[in-house]
Each structure stands twice: as structure tokens, then as C-alpha cells.
Amino acid sequence: ITDVLEDDPDRVLARFLSFGRSIAAAAARRALAEAGVQPVEIAGLIVNTCTGYLCPGLSSYIAEDLGLRASIRVHDLMGMGCGAAIPNLEAAAGMLARSGEGPVLSIAVEICSATMFPSHEPELIVSNCIFGDGAAAAVLDLAPDTGNHGLARMIDFASGIFPHYRDDLRYRTQGGRLRNYLNKRVPVIGAQTSAEVASRLLARHRLSRNDIGWWAIHPGGTTVLAQAAKELGLSDDAMRFSNSVFENHGNMSSPSVLFVLRGILDGGTPRRGQKGMLVSFGAGFSAFAALIEFT
């Protein structure tokens, strides 16, 4: 508890680096093992985080810890908040498409406890209660002609930026530390912007919401999930994996939506050819969606 409540900015940042580095590498090793990929085979690395600033970014430390080769392509995505795992996946898909060389390792990692900011203000009480630390990783590659086709195929992405809501959800720097600002309107704003982006993606592919067999909605909180279900017209059953992640892990910011996808893969048994939708939102105000097909 004393460690989490540390208020010295230098020590807080050191804590972010120490724990961010370790849990990101652990998540990456699990993903690599499941994919049957050795670290030296990785051609690209994309890391996103918003809960601490480093230069060089976490990618430098993670590449060292995993033993990745020096010639890999590297991107660090910063400041995109809870929604960042989806643009991370899009960047990884773009890297594959441009270079034709894979695999690419995608990592979302947040040490939300490094942004703990004790206060009696209602939004900070909520923020301190619901956010947790977490990391998730995925290995993306070009689809092979034969053999293992992985767990899912990335079909397309969509995003939206809504600056008029910027001050409703953001980090501010106060006394050298990150202070979260979380307006009570966020559940409604998040649900509406996410639904707008998801609907645009569906329309682009001439799909309806009924064509989506599995939904991975960012588990930002119980009210967030209730509003998202209402806006998207989703049943309790469709939301069960998102609710489960929040109940068991809290809101881990960007890795959360990938935890939901993992839950679907492990507990939902999606059939080959079924479509899924990943939906998240975050600071900016921004919203993201990814259309996938299970393989």
C-alpha cells in the first residue's frame, strides 16, 4: 500500500518502469509460446501505454528483456488511453502489410497504480477504486497458405476522435504526477462514440450487429458496460466476458479489451468463420473498433 501511495514523481516513474517492463515481458512470453514463435523470429514490436512517460519508451527495455534482434521495426504509442490496444493492432497489421515481413508483437501495458492520486474528489475516488495494472500481448503475422492460421483474422478497423469531449476523460500533470480526470458523463459519451465507430465499421462491410457473434467491449466499469450494452443493443449474455474481466481485474486501461478477447477464446468457443468485434474508447476523446473473424 505504501508503495502504491508513493508521491515522489521520480520514484513513481521508477515503479512504472520496473513493473511495466516485467509484466509486459511476461505477457509477451506467453503470447510467443502460444503462437509457437521464438523471440529472434519477431520482425516488429509495437508497445502502447499511457500511465508513464519514458524516453526511450518501454519498447527498448522489452526488446532487451525478450532478446529481440536489433533489426526489428519498433513503435511506441503514447497518450491514447484506454482505447489504445486497438490502434496498436491496426499499426501492427499496417506494418505487416507494408513490409511483408512478420511476425509482429503487439503489447498493451498499463501500470495504473502509478497514477494513484489520493483525494476526496469524487472522480478520483472512483478512478482509484476501479483501475488496476495489466498487460496483454498478441502475435500478428501474414496468413500462411497452409498450416496454422492462428486464432483470428484481422479484417478491418475504424476510429473516431471527438475533441469536444477531451476534458471529460484525461490525465493532467499535477506536481509532476499524472492525475486522472473522469467526468460522470464518461459512460454515456463512451457508449455513444463507441457505437458510432462500430456502426461505421459494420456499414463499411455491409454487416448488421446481428452478424457479429462475439463482442469484446472495453470493461471501463459497470455503468460503462451497461451504457454500451444499451447503445449497441447487446444482451447480458453478449456482455458476459466484458463484465467478467471487470469483476476479476478491474479496468486495466488499454489491455482490458484483449483480456475480454482472451476470455471469449477460452470460454466462448467461437466457431471458425464467426465474426467478432473489439470496441474500446479512451482519452482524446477517442473510440476504436476492430472487426475480426475467428479461424
Rank of each mutant, 00 (worst) to 15 (best):
C82Y: 08
N88S: 12
L124G: 03
D141S: 14
P118T: 11
A158M: 09
V139C: 02
G83I: 04
S113W: 04
A84N: 01
E110C: 04
C112H: 03
G147H: 11
A97N: 14
L151F: 09
A114W: 03
A136F: 02
A85T: 00
G81R: 03
E123H: 15
H120L: 14
P122V: 09
D133R: 07
C129H: 12
A152M: 14
I86M: 13
L124D: 10
L96S: 03
P118V: 11
P103G: 05
V139A: 04
L105S: 05
A108D: 01
A97C: 10
I107C: 00
S99R: 13
A158N: 15
D141P: 01
S127W: 02
A137I: 03
E90T: 05
F157G: 10
S127F: 09
L142Q: 13
V126P: 03
A137P: 02
P87Y: 08
D133L: 06
P103W: 06
A158F: 11
A92K: 08
E101A: 15
E110I: 01
M116S: 11
A84K: 00
A84P: 02
L96T: 04
F131I: 02
R98P: 00
E121A: 15
A93F: 00
G100Q: 13
A84D: 00
I155Y: 08
A136T: 01
A135S: 10
A138G: 02
S127C: 09
I155R: 11
G102L: 09
T146D: 14
V126D: 05
A135Y: 07
I130Y: 07
N148T: 00
G102S: 08
I107S: 03
H120F: 10
L142K: 10
G100E: 14
A93K: 07
